Simulated assay, not measured.
Amino acid sequence: MAAPAARREVPPAQALDLAAAAFALLSSPMRLHIVWALAQQENDVSQLARRVGGTPQAVSQHLAKLKLAGVAHARRQGRHHVYSVSDQHLTTAAQHMLERLTRDVAKVTIRA
């Protein structure tokens, strides 16, 4: 017989609201791709646009939202702004989810 699950404290409403907002921020496939790409390496807008398959304008708009939310930040390097991830916890959660779902997609593809 399995051991009973440990009781966990109910998260406060404010924590639930913040978590929902963070997941909503990553609900855009383009923003999720940008966060994933920035977790791999820093990039400027044009490099990032090439990596994620978007226009520099679209990537710039997504980066503005990510910066406002504290997920990404920019530093000046010459005439460019170089972006990187500033929220490692959210990035780690996104990477874990993508890794899991990538395995699931591969399983479905192999069966088809």
Rank of each mutant, 00 (worst) to 15 (best):
T91N: 06
A93D: 05
V10I: 13
T91L: 06
A58P: 02
H81G: 09
D87A: 11
L18C: 04
Q14A: 15
V85R: 01
A19N: 09
T109L: 11
L66R: 04
R7M: 15
K107E: 04
D44Y: 12
Q95S: 05
H89E: 12
K65V: 00
Q88V: 14
T109Y: 09
A6H: 12
M30V: 04
S60I: 02
R31M: 11
S60E: 03
P12H: 12
A112V: 06
D17C: 02
Q40L: 04
D104S: 07
A49W: 01
S60H: 06
T92D: 08
A58C: 09
T55M: 01
K67H: 10
V71L: 07
A64V: 09
G78D: 11
I110M: 03
E99Y: 01
Q40D: 08
A72G: 07
L26R: 04
S60T: 03
L63A: 04
L68M: 10
R50P: 09
A64Q: 09
A74E: 05
T55R: 02
A112I: 05
R79S: 13
E99M: 05
A106K: 12
P4D: 10
A5F: 11
H81T: 05
L90D: 01
L38C: 03
M97V: 14
H62G: 07
T109R: 06
